[in-house]
Amino acid sequence: MAPQSVSEVVAVLSEHGDRAKLLAGGTDIIVQLREGLREADMVVDIKKIDAVTSFKYCDENGLSLGAAVACYNLYEHPQLSKLYGALADSTHIIGGWQIQSRASVGGNLCNASPAADSIPALIALNATAVIAGPSGERSVAVEDFCTGPGRNVLENGEFLVSLQIPAQGGNCGSAYERFIPRNEMDIAVVGAGSWVKLADDGTIAEAKIGLGAVAATPLVAEAAAASLIGKEPTEENFAAAGELAKQIATPISDMRGTDEYRMHLVGVLVKRTLTTAVERAQSS
């Protein structure tokens, strides 16, 4: 079914609970239903609802990104791809071109994979999830949205309507990078998103770092980011931040890499994304 409004979706979800699954780009949910990883009696296509399929940017409020907006809208957008480098980076590597035509950032978040590419980027960019439900709207910081692999904070009757991402002033820059064995079409072995704001003297005024695929949920590397405040943007300082980021990682060993390798990659990717983020901030 394809409801026309947010309230209709809430009503359907309230009635059918877990047996109804939302369909945005479908690139995760269709596979999961087909392979029996998730079950549903009904699939609710939310792409007829303006609030979840549209996006707009203004200098005061930043970007309001409908939950079902497909990836390509971000990296193909000349202004948004510059302002939100980390988001452009991540949306450009989620699956191939065919996937990016359909997959949405909102869906990537709701799917709550620890390795989701857009989540560390959203965390770094300080994004907030706007959730609609039976008792109205509420907001949750993206870093608090995932509660475990494939699990999130959405309660019965609730769904993700949009993401709010703060405006990017001058001197801001962000980047996302993941490590994969191939060059495309792969799941992050580790992913890192970094955001920085530079002070007028070129030192780092603010920073935020998100990590993926190193714990049951994507993480915020707070101490790593804090270590950079007031510092010069040097490789040494970035490497030190990488070391601090490792301290919160609790990776597993699986077919994509060993825990030891993942831990090592945290340092590498934090350093690399900080480098790119600063370069972007310097040229913004």
């Binding site: 780009g25 479908g26 690139t27 269709i30 699939v43 792409k47 390509y72 065919q98 996937i99 359909r102």
Partner: peptide, 12 residues
């Protein structure tokens, strides 16, 4: 736009 038709539902 190019899509994988295996990941689109007919009803969509």
């Amino acid at each position: 736009r190019p899509v994988d038709s295996c990941l689109v539902l007919g009803v969509e």
